[in-house]
Amino acid sequence: MLQQNIKYEESRDPDFARWATEQTGGENIRRCIQCGTCSATCPVSSYMDHTPRQLIHLAREGFKKEVLSSFTLWLCASCYSCRVDCPKDIHVTDFMYALKRRAMAERVYPKRFPIPVLAQEFSRMVQWFGRVNETIVAAVMFLRTDWFKLLGQTGLGLKLMRTGRLSVFPESIRGRSELQRMLKAAEASKEKEVASR
């Protein structure tokens, strides 16, 4: 047990630590005094493997594997309690977003894990139609993770239908191609910025 809690110098990744401080939300993590206010105010910290306080410490010390494979990132519901309560003005919620993006880019999350799948399907729908249809996004998420759970949603679906809140046809904006052009331009201009650095 004790053995597991010991961290060794050689497993630190200084590049990752540097990367962390360069992210939106990561700017101030070196100032963290480990007071634990974030963990205390977080409504889901009791479900986390590392509390937000621990995760910030692990990240700034460069323990990449522990950080990116932590369940903590995915539990963050973006309620911003930690951010407003942090005495050192660390934007913890935004830092969690940065870690989630990195974990997705490196594909270090459980396959069929619903949270990244929901984010992917949501974004795909926005890119495609310009708007999101909640029913379709939720249905696709269940199909891609655990289709059996979709069956479990039948009752909810019927209730939403009865109250006129279920729509199965995606709504599209007129400026679809314009939006896609914008997203492409953003990508190109970001690549240019990275290349010129």
Partner: peptide, 13 residues
């Protein structure tokens, strides 16, 4: 268009 909500920030800031 959709504001992106919390989901899109998980994909691309």
């Amino acid at each position: 268009n959709c504001c992106g909500a919390t989901a899109y920030a998980n994909i691309d800031e």
